[in-house]
Amino acid sequence: MQKDPSVNVLGAPLQPCSVNPLTGFFRDGACNTCEQDAGSHTVCAVMNAEFLAYSKYVGNDLTTPRPEFGFAGVQPGDRWCLCAARFRQAFDEGCAPGVVLEATHRNALAVVPLHMLQACALEQ
């Protein structure tokens, strides 16, 4: 799999999202993506309890550890490369998490308008 260019939504080099927990489609700590990333794991989101409960409610439990997959679970305050469509859905429902624009891949813009990401932007 070949990564798409590592560029963020601001047009600058993509910054790391998280290495603890290790995130990203490539599990490289960044929200890099490629053609095979059907979920577009491109939004660097800062988890909060409200979003994690919402995500579990809509069928994506990010908090329960899955040791068989090397997944310890995500906690409030953790950064995580979130699927762009899930971010958009949460935004539309009023419970989107914070976003680190510098670590959000530009391919997220195919699903989420920049103004929505900016509305949830946090300082890096």
Rank of each mutant, 00 (worst) to 15 (best):
G98S: 10
H41W: 07
V46E: 06
K56R: 15
Q2D: 14
K3V: 13
T23D: 07
R79S: 11
P65D: 10
N8P: 08
R79K: 15
G24R: 00
F69Y: 14
M47E: 10
P67Y: 03
G77V: 13
A38E: 13
A119T: 08
P13S: 04
V9Y: 10
A85Y: 10
G70M: 13
L62M: 14
A30K: 15
E35D: 12
V100C: 12
L117E: 12
A90V: 05
V58P: 05
M1W: 01
V112N: 05
G39A: 11
P76M: 08
N48H: 13
N107R: 11
F26E: 12
F87Y: 13
M1T: 12
P97Q: 07
C44H: 00
F91R: 05
A53C: 03
L101I: 13
F71P: 00
Q118E: 15
E93Y: 09
K56Q: 14
V46A: 04
C44G: 06
Q15S: 13
D78C: 12
N60E: 11
T42Q: 02
C83M: 08
G73V: 13
R88D: 15
A90R: 06
A84Y: 06
E102R: 06
P113Q: 11
T33N: 02
F25C: 08
F26G: 09
C17K: 08
H115N: 15
H41Y: 07
K3F: 06
A12F: 03
P16E: 10
V19G: 00
A72R: 15
E50N: 09
E35N: 07
L109A: 07
V99G: 03
T23M: 04
V7C: 01
G98N: 02
S55Q: 11
A30D: 11
A90C: 09
G29I: 11
K56S: 11
A84F: 06
T64H: 00
F87L: 05
T104Y: 02
T63P: 04
Q75M: 07
C95H: 08
G77D: 14
N60T: 12
A121E: 04
T33Q: 02
Q89V: 00
C34F: 02
R86D: 08
T63S: 15
P13Q: 05
S6V: 13
